[in-house]
Design a protein around this nucleic acid. Structure first.
Lengths: 204, 204
DNA sequence: GTGTACATGTAATCCGTTACATGATTCC
DNA sequence: GGAATCATGTAACGGATTACATGTACAC
């Protein structure tokens, strides 16, 4: 059984490109630093891979010649390993980023809306609580996105990350508005009003 | 070493609950129908599993006693199999939907913004094209979300799916605005007029 | 001297997709 | 009779997570 792709190195998962993308900005960094950076900004518009996944991708990228690494300090195992993008890597990434291939549709998994969709199985109050919890969380996220943007601002090499983070800031704002609009919609669902028998108006 | 969970059947992946959720609305249906339904509405706020995944989840749900199935027609393999939720299944789903456990944050993977983030590796025109392609696609999605909403409207049992779909409609509208705002931001990126070969920038 | 952050890595496992295989039904 | 759609399923594989294992550096 011949393998379907062996030498075809153009077919990497988006995660690999995202990690290589992190390396495409000036400077060397460790897997650990990459993870923190992903947590702080990548995750707002893409997502932050598990640390073990990052290490795995780094090994793959190095195997492809897209990244290089060196130990800082003595040649011992389990010491810091600094990664950098190679010229080949930069070319491959540029081709991926600017190629004609469709970016593909955004993927959204919204556990809150999934539960609202099943609202017939829960109580209206519980639904409201959930949405409000989500609003609170989103406010936190918005703040973090703004912090990330503030950190990127003024640095010329980060012009495009700034654009992405401005998008993220607006996206979080939109998320808040969506949640509030949903709250209003929920109040209008038939059968929602009467939760307490005491609310029942006096019968004629 | 005792297994950590064996009889604990409360720990299903969201996909399983989503599939069971599809079954929680009145009527029996086949895996095939579930897939079409997921494509038409679930995917706007959650996502549509592959058909093979749906069949797998249905088998698991049946194994747990959360769903039951029957063949329509003769007892032959590969004939239509109609699934329905059981009472146990409905209870488990209701507990999941209304439980106190946090719904978890929404997960967004936006391949377009990922590439914009890497804009320093592409030409401004190409970036613009990508965004415009995304706008066109989103307009299509908006229309489909509206169609789904129209189909749900007026049916009382679908009040909550209506709320979810209204959310989706607004979400697609927000997506359009975000894309347009990003287009404006992109036009303002310094050095946008022409592309430069690599400067060697210094961080910090 | 202890706890926290830094730092790397392996193993087991599961989630989910794609590709493939099979066949029934419906419509022209 | 042929195409499209309906319909179910298996196999192989890869992507990604969690849990685990290990150790360093530094602040309090």
């Amino acid at each position: 059984m011949p393998k379907k792709q062996d030498t075809r190195h153009g077919q990497l998962p988006p995660t690999a490109w995202a990690v290589l993308g992190l390396l495409s900005f000036p400077g060397e960094r460790t897997g650990y630093e990459l993870k923190k950076w992903a947590d702080a900004s990548l995750r707002f518009f893409y997502w932050s891979p598990a640390i073990s996944q990052i290490y795995a991708e780094l090994r793959r990228l190095e195997g492809l010649g897209y990244a290089s690494s060196r130990r800082s300090g003595p040649e011992e195992p389990r010491t810091k390993r600094q990664y950098a993008i190679t010229e080949t890597g930069r070319e491959a990434l540029a081709e991926w980023a600017s190629g004609t291939a469709d970016s593909g549709p955004p993927v959204l998994k919204h556990p809150l809306v999934l539960r609202i969709w099943l609202g017939h199985l829960a109580s209206p109050e519980r639904l409201r609580e959930r949405v409000e919890l989500h609003v609170a969380r989103t406010e936190g996220e918005l703040k973090e996105a703004r912090d990330a943007l503030a950190r990127a601002e003024g640095i010329e090499e980060w012009s495009y990350p700034q654009v992405a983070l401005r998008w993220s800031e607006r996206q979080q704002l939109a998320e808040l508005e969506l949640a509030r609009a949903m709250l209003a919609d929920l109040a209008r669902v038939p059968g929602t009003a009467r939760q307490h028998p005491s609310d029942t108006p006096t019968p004629g």
